[in-house]
Design a protein around this nucleic acid. Structure first.
Lengths: 214, 214
DNA sequence: CTCTTTGCACCTAGGTGCAAACAT
DNA sequence: ATGTTTGCACCTAGGTGCAAAGAG
């Protein structure tokens, strides 16, 4: 995933469907992103693989993205697909925009938290999510990704350009029709992408589901 | 103020500064728009005046714009200028976008409501704002305006084009430099504008203030 | 050398008044 | 004759990857 100083969105965005909530209870939904391991990576082009390249950089201030629809009732959350498309990633450790701070060239796991209102006294964008009875945390291992400041392989670039509406100008039908003669389109590209991730629902064909009860 | 079927913003937007709240109490801030009288108007061009042209059209479904920052603490509300720039007006009585429904060629008064959370059980975008101890309502008579589907005089058009960033394309330095030779700029235009209104703060020079305690 | 930053062309998304067409 | 709707050129605002420059 691209990270910049100013902050860059994730693409595709994490989207979840939630069931099992108490319709009349109030909840926060939040997301944070934790390191997968204690390593730093580099991309080896000739083998098309991410290789360990030393230990992780020193930890960065923890940040939590509180979904902008918070606070809302279980009923409200369950009626919609909850999308985290406005969340932004930055590599600026001094960020004051409330973005999630990550190191480049590291592996990360996004997490979704469902937080019952009466347990949320400590909830803050700049503090770790509290743990306890009123908080449920969900990992989707298929959403692990590697951070970069520039794409390391053409398959990922291809995927982003083909799927992200904001990158339409780079599609083959666009301005680069002639210049793009060296890149090969790989329609079957799936979860085995070298750079990391596939979202819960990259193609809109289905969504991850959180099923639980508090 | 222009109203359309799809919904059109007010410009300038209503902006208020609020003081006197309990910092730790939770409040909704809301806006609605009520008829000034029971009349329908027409604009008489040769006398540059709005004239009564019969009785008002039959009432429309009441709508309330709940400020998107709701629910928030008194502390949060008092730290910012509360802007209603995302509110939209429509003349579509069957509107399902949650916009405020008004009749064209009528006079209206915007109202701002401060609603204590523990009194807000009945608060809804499609129901009248409740009245009682936990609700304070404020009128700014200088914000009365007349609704139209097309501007009736050039002074108002001028004001909108000069002040609204989205209308920059119609400014004299824009494409109409040559065509605009018949319109005269009136810099001293103020609350006596023929079409209605001047906002609390059309020029950014100061803001209306709500001072009270609940 | 590897990685990051910067300015930018190219998009999406949506807020303007205008002029012509439409409705009554 | 009067008021409304529609399509549109022209904006604001901001999300893309790219290529060149910068940093170590």
């Amino acid at each position: 995933m691209i990270i910049t100083k100013a902050g860059r969105r994730m693409f595709p965005a994490m989207r979840v469907k939630i069931t099992g909530l108490d319709p009349h209870q109030q909840y926060y939904i939040a997301m944070d992103i934790v390191p997968v391991d204690n390593k730093r990576y580099r991309y080896v082009y000739h083998s098309s693989k991410w290789m360990v390249a030393g230990n992780a950089d020193s930890p960065v201030p923890p940040r939590v993205y509180i979904h902008p629809d918070s606070l809302a009732s279980g009923d409200t959350w369950m009626r919609q697909v909850v999308s985290f498309d406005k969340l932004k990633l930055t590599n600026n450790e001094l960020d004051d925009q409330g973005h999630i701070i990550l190191h480049s060239m590291h592996k990360y796991q996004p997490r979704v938290h469902v937080i019952r209102k009466d347990f949320s006294s400590d909830l803050s964008p700049t503090k770790p999510v509290p743990v306890g009875d009123g908080v449920k945390t969900f990992n989707f291992p298929e959403t692990v990704f590697t951070t970069v400041t520039a794409y390391q392989n053409q398959q990922i670039t291809r995927l982003k350009i083909d799927r992200n509406p904001f990158a339409k100008g780079f599609r083959d039908s666009g301005r680069n029709r002639a210049k793009m003669n060296h890149s090969i389109y790989m329609p079957s590209l799936s979860t085995s992408t070298l750079e990391g991730w596939i979202n819960v629902d990259p193609l809109g064909a289905g969504t991850g589901a959180l099923v639980f009860s508090l």
